[in-house]
Design a binder for these strands. Structure first.
Lengths: 333, 333
DNA sequence: TCTATTGGTTGGAGCGCTCCAATGCTGTAG
DNA sequence: CTACAGCATTGGAGCGCTCCAACCAATAGA
């Protein structure tokens, strides 16, 4: 369990510790002969550099910290994939920590990440108050994903939720729908722009808006539909705040004898893997999640390299994915 | 961006660096007067200890590395939750890295984690060859989750897949089913014990076994059912290798005009969040995922504290979760 | 009164590495 | 034959911390 150090490698290869250091960092100013000798010795000893000692000595870090607010949500998995790809490419490592959607836990997670003195910090949909983000930003470069901020020291990456919902409404209108309701995400992240997008799009088409309070869960979607049914006046199309909500809504509709999409069309949001299941086959709005991650990593690395100090605000274009839960009113069962 | 050091805090509080170190580590042998002075100075400067310098100096680590083979799978999120809870409790931090189910990437991820010299390493369902695990185990304590191993230096945490499938078969038999097929997970992790469990349980009940080749995806489940249908002789119950497979199977059955559970009962495996959706409401086998994580963390910490050197092999009991995809043959539609 | 003991505090060495100034070495120009 | 690049190589200082032996009162015991 006791690992060899640079000193051990140096002794075995018959060179100085400094030379080993140069080899490990891939310096060009080392003779081929010595280089191979060092690499051979390292190999034989099973040596690999001590990341912490390295960053302590160099006063630089090759680590990006990532705080994932909710590991249970596959949304973040793809963001992390994007981050990972770009970071790796540029010789950076990721250390991930999770906040579990609790501000206290999230705060601890950020503290823990900062204690490693990362070169940058990506916060994926954080729930901590803005002040906490500011204090992190005083210590390292910070990028926010799926959360906006007015802080001048942090970069942000978001999707254009207004536009995304607009795509859903346009799609339904083009199918011939005129009575389109929105199941609202309430206090949830990004619920506000989605609601705004719904209202704007419906108005643009000269239709009457109808917003039903709901939340980002399948139970929430079901409950909202039950409420709608009690009212008697069932719309022909539902634009839901996310995929889970949509699946709950579909369930409740079918329980009540409605057929999707024959009687009611339903659109989700997020294009989770759930939506793609053939059993669900949900028409939904896709966010370029991988791109979120890539842009987040690039934003951080730009700051790390000192190429930029002005904040960037990326607003990515969502896209419509048509599957089998939307059709013209009275269309396919 | 330049953070204060212990030296700065010491100067401000008018004490030595060593005293600050004692305070930061919560040593009891510091007078209250000095302690408050130090804490005040630290607070004012926004000081927080440098985790890397600390672990370098102390030659101990308060970090557990976690390699998650696939972030997209919510299974691991709960394991990580369990790990996180126990680790935090004992003052350890988690650093997570992902392998994306590719041996090469996974290897890099493990390398990267090891370069932080973690006190222990949890590998969640790793796909790297056993030799790579052994080499990691030479460098730190290793625990394997959802993968078994004969290595005497690593601990393992698994569910008893044989028993789990047995529960599913018993349940179906108790409902009156006699023609029960198994959709097999092929080369996938844990597919072998599940297959064995099916064969053993079916035999124990004196029934004829029927194993259909499939895989851990919804498309795989659908394909297997289509094959079954082409054969003409459709069983009254399906025990699937996992939840995704089960959902695909249900989809294909419904497309072909069969009703679940009236015509065919279906059982999944894993109790993913998917299974709990009311739209799916799948009878399935639950693995104590959180418990996996807790036991993994405890196994590592026991080794870290030097309490144990013998390997442990946890085999946890899965449990049956009955929902709406199973019924007596010809039962509820 | 002198020596032990105790509790609080401190300077210095050292963790494994990087960085820099300095060194030795060759080869070429003067 | 000396001078001077130019290159490969090296020793030493230092990153922010922990750990240890030493130290310094202040109190207790003889």
């Amino acid at each position: 369990m006791v690992r060899p150090t640079m000193e051990d490698v140096a002794a075995r290869a018959g060179v100085s510790r400094a030379l080993v250091s140069l080899v490990m960092r891939g310096s060009p100013k080392v003779s081929d002969q010595r280089r191979t000798a060092v690499l051979k010795a390292a190999e034989e000893l099973g040596y690999s550099p001590h990341a912490m000692a390295r960053s302590l000595a160099s006063r630089t870090s090759h680590v990006l910290g990532v705080m994932v607010s909710d590991l249970h949500n596959a949304f973040f998995a793809e963001v992390v994939d994007g981050l990972d790809a770009v970071a790796r490419e540029q010789g950076f490592d990721l250390i991930i920590n999770t906040g579990g959607r609790s501000p206290a836990r999230e705060r601890r997670a950020v503290q823990s990440l900062l204690s490693f003195r990362p070169a940058g910090l990506a916060l994926l949909s954080p729930v901590v108050p803005s002040a906490a983000i500011k204090s992190a930003a005083d210590q390292t470069s910070v990028v926010l994903v799926a959360r906006s901020s007015r802080l001048s020291t942090v970069d942000t990456i978001n999707d254009d939720g207004e536009r995304g919902i607009g795509l859903a409404v346009d799609h339904l209108v083009s199918l011939g729908h005129t009575r389109i309701a929105h199941l609202d995400g309430g206090e949830g992240t990004q619920a506000a722009p989605r609601r705004r997008g719904y209202l704007a799009a419906v108005e643009a088409h000269g239709l009457a808006p109808r917003v039903v309070a709901s939340e980002y869960t399948d139970a929430g979607g079901a409950k909202a539909v039950q409420e709608l049914l009690r009212g008697g006046d069932v719309p022909t199309a539902l634009v839901c705040c996310n995929d889970f909500n949509a699946v709950g809504a579909i369930s409740a509709l079918e329980d009540a004898g409605f057929r999707v999409p024959h009687d009611v069309s339903v659109v989700g949001y997020d294009n989770t893997s759930l939506a793609a299941l053939r059993h669900v086959s949900l028409t939904t709005i896709d966010q370029p999640r991988n791109e979120f991650g890539r842009l987040a990593a690039e934003a951080l690395l730009q700051r790390v390299r000192g190429e930029r100090t002005e904040p960037v605000r990326h607003l990515l274009h969502p896209s419509l994915v048509v599957r089998n839960t939307t059709a013209a009113p009275g269309g396919p069962r």
